[in-house]
C-alpha cells in the first residue's frame, strides 16, 4: 500500500512539475523616436506629448496583461552607471536596447500638426525584434483634427485610435513565432592563428566546413527554416535561424541552449570553440 502511494505521489509531482513550466515571454520596451542629433536623455523630459504617447502605448500592453520594461527607469540606471558617451546618439539608443536585454522594442514618433482648420497629432508606432531587426507591427495613428491646443489629449486620442490593431498584428507575429520558432543570429568565425577555415575538409565524407555547418543548421532549425547571410573563407553568418520556444521535454529553450548544442557539435568534429551570446545573437569563434 505504501509503495503504491509512493508511486502515485511521484506521478503527481511529475505532473505538477510539467504543468508549472511557463513559456518565457519576450521583454518589450517602448522608446521614443529620435532624429539624428537629438538627445535621447532629454527628449522625454522636455516633451510631455512624447511622454503621454509612450505611457499610453505601455498602458495598452498592460491592459492585455503584459508588463513592459520601463524605458525611463532603464535610462536612469544607464545614467547612474555612466554607460553613455554623449557624442553619438545612435549609439546611446543601441546601448540602451542592449543594456535592457529587451527582445522587442516599440518606437513611438509623435508629430504635432497645427493648421487653421484644427490641430492634430500623427503617431507612428513600430515594433522591432531587437536581435534581427525584423519588423513585427507598424501603424500610423491619427488623432483627428480638433480646435484645441491640448496636444497631450490629441496624442492620447491618436494612440487610442490604433493601438488595438497594432497589438493584434503583433499577436499574429507571436503566433508565427510559436508555430515556426523564434529567430536567432549565429556568427561563425575563426580565432587568429586558427589552422582551420570554411574550406577545411572535415568529417567522414571530407566535406567543406561551411557545408557541414549548413547541413547541421538545416537539421537543427524549426521546419528547416534558416537563412545564410553570407559565407567567406573566414566567416559564415546565419542571420535568421528559427529555434523552438520549448525543447522536447517541454522546458523553455533559448539561444544559450542552442549555442551549447553548436558547441557540442563542433566538439564531435574535433574542434575547440568559444561562444558568446548577446540576447539572440550567438558568436562562435573556432580556435
Amino acid at each position: 500500500m505504501k509503495y503504491l502511494l509512493f508511486i502515485l505521489s511521484l506521478f503527481a509531482v511529475k505532473t505538477i512539475a510539467y504543468t508549472q513550466v511557463n513559456t518565457v515571454q519576450p521583454k518589450i520596451m517602448v522608446i521614443p523616436y529620435t532624429k539624428e542629433g537629438e538627445d535621447l536623455r532629454t527628449i522625454l523630459e522636455e516633451d510631455i506629448n512624447k511622454r503621454i504617447a509612450i505611457t499610453k502605448v505601455k498602458e495598452a500592453f498592460d491592459n492585455r496583461g503584459f508588463t513592459t520594461v520601463d524605458f525611463v527607469a532603464k535610462l536612469k540606471a544607464a545614467k547612474d552607471n555612466q554607460i553613455f558617451t554623449s557624442d553619438n546618439q545612435t549609439d546611446i539608443k543601441t546601448q540602451i536596447i542592449e543594456m535592457s536585454g529587451c527582445d522587442i522594442y516599440v518606437q513611438a514618433e509623435v508629430d504635432a500638426q497645427k493648421s487653421s482648420s484644427g490641430n492634430a497629432v500623427n503617431l507612428v508606432i513600430t515594433a522591432y525584434e531587437a536581435s534581427t531587426g525584423n519588423s513585427l507591427s507598424n501603424k500610423v495613428c491619427f488623432s483627428g483634427k480638433f480646435y484645441t491646443d491640448d496636444y497631450a489629449k490629441l496624442s492620447s486620442k491618436a494612440v487610442e485610435s490604433c493601438i488595438e490593431e497594432f497589438l493584434n498584428t503583433m499577436q499574429i507575429k507571436f503566433t508565427d513565432i510559436v508555430n515556426n520558432g523564434k529567430s536567432v543570429i549565429v556568427d561563425f568565425s575563426f580565432a587568429q592563428g586558427s589552422s582551420y577555415n570554411m574550406s577545411s575538409e572535415m568529417g567522414s565524407d571530407g566535406l567543406p566546413f561551411s557545408d557541414i555547418l549548413e547541413e547541421w543548421v538545416s537539421n537543427n532549425s524549426v521546419k528547416n527554416n534558416y537563412h545564410v547571410q553570407g559565407t567567406t573563407n573566414l566567416k559564415m553568418i546565419f542571420d535568421d535561424i528559427r529555434i523552438p520556444l520549448r525543447d522536447v521535454t517541454g522546458k523553455n529553450y533559448n539561444s544559450n541552449k542552442y549555442a551549447l548544442e553548436i558547441f557540442k557539435f563542433l566538439k564531435t568534429l574535433g574542434l575547440t570553440s568559444s561562444k558568446q551570446i548577446k540576447s539572440n545573437t550567438i558568436y562562435i569563434t573556432i580556435k
Partner: peptide, 19 residues
C-alpha cells in the same frame, strides 16, 4: 470585445498576449 477576448484567454481558447 475586451471582455470576450479576456474570457477566451481565461478559458484557454486563445493564447494571452505574447508567446
Amino acid at each position: 470585445q475586451v471582455a470576450l477576448r479576456k474570457d477566451l484567454e481565461q478559458n484557454q481558447v486563445i493564447r494571452k498576449f505574447g508567446f
